[in-house]
Amino acid sequence: MPADPPTSEQTPVNGRTDPHLYLHPQTLARLSTMELRAKMIVEGVMSGQHRSPYTGVSIEFAQHRPYVAGDDLRHLDWKVYARTDKLQVKQYQQETNLDLVVMVDSSGSMRFGSRLFSEASGSHLATAPDGRPNWSKFDHATAIAAALTHITIHQGDRVGLVVYADEIRSMVARTARKSAWKQIVDALAAQPIQNEGNLSRSIDQTLAEVSNRCLIVVVSDLFDDPEEIRSAFAKVKHRGHDLIAFQVLDRAETTFRFDDPAAFVGLEEEPTIRIDPRALRDEYLSAINEHIERVAAAARSFGFDHHVIDTHTWLGPTLASFVARRNDASRRKTPR
């Protein structure tokens, strides 16, 4: 898909906090017309547009149920008792806030990118602020994360951010304050490191920081061991959270279009190998396709969504289609 044409509203690159590098106005404009709704209603302390699956004190009645010992007597419907001589407890449907935790992979493999930065960023910049000419997977992941958090904050929901590699490298606590946006952008501007990613450990560390149920969005190439990924997903499910996995891959990684023999240097300190790419292309594609399939299967097994994101496609349409699908799914699942 060709990149959207840049607009006249360009903000000069200003250190690490330029949100326009991640949220192109066109992208935000398209997303702002939609509601970002979670697939499941998460429990929140703040009222909002998201329904809670938990009944309790709320302004909207849901149903009656027989009283059992231990119920709060304040919830007894005395009018029903007066008419029917039966003890019934009133239940209400609470509206909750959406707690969104975005986990962005900053491992070494995320530094890879075959797309030109000038083409991908939507700006007229030829290189990244650090001088890189390429649009990396990490760039794409941070753009996705920024978009999600931006929208979520502007909906009044709480948003948290985790940047991880082999472990959590930086974290922004959940907050609904709009001023937190700058914090998030600063965190996203952190450069990826060369360590190997460890999603399982990072999930553990993240889950330790959240008490209520959240929607966890993992934005990563998910090059971890599929079994470890499955284990991490299981922990998320076990803790009652929902998860969306955005597997960000560069098109060069999924097509492997190299003609000439070359030395391939890993970004996570793997040994260099000199190969003729054409000789290994079939085997390579088979391996990476199998990996993607296993990751997707792991996500599906826990009811999570899994999406492969191509860095060569503009993130706006990808997010728009994703949000639309999520909202449709949420409406089907949540009675109002």
Binding site: G108, S109, F223, L249, A262, E270, H291
Partner: peptide, 8 residues
């Protein structure tokens, strides 16, 4: 040389 992410 080609720096490569999907070395695995």
């Amino acid at each position: 040389p080609v720096t490569w992410g999907a070395m695995r």
